[in-house]
Structure formats: structure tokens, C-alpha cells
């Protein structure tokens, strides 16, 4: 058995009176591909944000790569964890004042202290992997949504992370652009990288997911393999959810 790279115990997050996460216990092994499903407002995004402390949690423990994340985590440790985790956003969040190449090479240069040449070499390799090396000198706004999201994936990969978090990567895209992004993600899934994907793409979830977690109202309702979850869900809430979307 490979080691567990992410462990959470009873994670809770509150926004004022509203409790977004009500105690989540998850163990994710290295190389595993975890799909998170759930209706909107169920705490999926909040959960994956706690994993690189974009969203500080109020209670419970989050341990990533052997480092516990809380108020006492040192800056160096936090930086280490963040460099181990790539994050892809729903809204891409590319830097509009930088070219594609600069977007991708910024992380290695600034956070890892590489030289410009090294960083751009890595960036070019990744841009080729996501299939848009010819766009390297354009600005983000000149690209289509699918291309922007692929740049965002390349940007996250440039830090050479062990874990990739995807927060609804295809939700802001036009239907015809979803495939090009999913292809990149499927290609990624074949390599030995831990992926946690919040998505509504059921086909993708069935094809590449090792495990599926279903969130509802801040609870982890069900956790099983994709085959079991889609064909024979145990919880009532999961059945209802699947009926609505399938």
C-alpha cells in the first residue's frame, strides 16, 4: 500500500453562523484520483480549499504530506505544502498582465527561485503537454476559455506538485471546450499524481475516478468506488442527486 498523502480528521469550517463543513474525515493515498460530487453549497469547494489553506479551518486536523496545517504552521512548511499542491480554479484566474509563458513560469521563478531560463524551459515543456505551445506569447484574454484553463493547468503543474486540486475546472467553459480540458486531465491521471477533482462531469468521474465522495450540506454522505456509486448508491441523498442529473 502506498502511503496516505492527505489525511483530514473532523474538519469544520464556518462562515459566521453558517457551518459549511461539519466534520469531514478523509484519507487519500498517493496516486489516487478522488472525485468529489455534490449539489452546490454542499461544501465541496470549501473542502478542497482547506487542503492548501486557502480556506483556514476552524476545527479538526488537516495533514498534507506529513505536515499539519493550522495557525502554528511555519511559513516555510506552508510554502512547502503549497508547492506540493497545484490548484486549478473554476474561473482560471490567469494573471492578465502577463503572457501565457510568463504566467506558467512565474511560480517556479518566484516561489522556487529558479532562473528565468530554467523556468521557461519547464513552462515550454508543460505548454507542449497541454497542447498550446504556439500561444506562449499571447495574453490570457486573447485565448479561448478552454485554452485559458489548459494554461491554468500548466501553471499549476509548473511547480511540479505531487497533488493536483481541481475546483470545477470545466464549469465555466462552453460545452465544445470541455473536452479539450478533460483530455488534458485524463492524460494527467495516467501519470502517478494524486488528483482531487470537484466536478459535474459524470462521464469523466466514471472513467478516471478511483474513488467518489458525495458531499451534502457540509457532510460527507457517501464514499465508494465509481462503479458502486453510480450503479448502486447506498445513501438516499446520493440516489436523489443521481436521479436529478442523469
Amino acid at each position: 500500500m502506498s502511503k496516505e498523502i492527505i489525511v483530514t480528521e473532523g474538519v469544520t469550517v464556518s462562515f459566521g453562523d453558517f457551518q459549511a463543513l461539519k466534520g469531514i474525515d478523509v484519507k487519500i493515498k498517493q496516486g489516487e484520483i478522488m472525485i468529489i460530487l455534490g449539489p452546490s453549497g454542499s461544501g465541496k469547494s470549501t473542502f478542497i480549499r482547506t487542503l492548501n489553506r486557502l480556506q483556514p479551518h476552524d476545527g479538526g486536523r488537516v495533514i498534507v504530506d506529513g505536515i499539519e496545517l493550522n495557525e502554528d504552521t511555519t511559513v516555510a512548511d506552508l510554502k512547502h505544502v503549497r508547492s506540493e499542491i497545484g490548484f486549478v480554479f473554476q474561473q482560471f484566474n490567469l494573471f492578465p498582465h502577463l503572457t501565457v509563458l510568463e504566467n506558467v513560469s512565474l511560480g517556479p521563478q518566484k516561489a522556487k527561485g529558479m532562473t528565468k531560463g530554467e523556468a521557461e524551459e519547464i513552462a515550454m515543456r508543460l505548454l507542449e503537454r497541454v497542447g498550446i505551445p504556439e500561444q506562449k506569447n499571447k495574453y490570457a484574454s486573447a485565448l479561448s476559455g478552454g485554452q485559458q484553463q489548459r494554461v491554468a493547468i500548466a501553471r499549476a503543474l509548473a511547480m511540479d506538485p505531487k497533488i493536483m486540486l481541481f475546483d470545477e475546472p470545466t464549469s465555466a467553459l462552453d460545452p465544445e471546450m470541455i473536452k479539450e480540458v478533460l483530455d488534458v486531465m485524463i492524460d494527467l491521471a495516467r501519470r502517478d499524481i494524486t488528483m482531487i477533482v470537484v466536478t459535474h462531469e459524470m462521464g469523466f468521474a466514471k472513467e478516471v475516478g478511483d474513488r467518489v465522495m458525495f458531499f451534502d450540506e457540509g457532510h460527507l454522505v457517501e464514499e465508494s468506488t465509481p462503479d458502486v456509486f453510480f450503479d448502486n448508491p447506498k445513501a438516499k441523498r446520493s440516489k436523489l442527486f443521481l436521479e436529478q442529473i442523469l
Binding site: R82, F89, Q91, N93, F95, L106, K110, A111, A156, M159
Partner: peptide, 29 residues
């Protein structure tokens, strides 16, 4: 947009780097 800050944080940039590399150029623009 707050997403800019989050994206830069997720990349592992320090707060000072985020201010100088990400926020300031966009604000001046």
C-alpha cells in the same frame, strides 16, 4: 478580483511577491 490573490497564493508566492508581481501591476494598469 479575489481569484488573482488566491491563484498567486496557491502557486506559493509570498505576500510581498503577490503585492509586487500580481496586485501592483494590475492596480496601476
Amino acid at each position: 478580483p479575489h481569484g488573482q490573490y488566491e491563484a498567486a497564493t496557491a502557486l506559493g508566492l509570498s505576500p510581498l511577491q503577490i503585492k509586487l508581481q500580481i496586485e501592483l501591476p494590475q492596480a496601476i494598469r
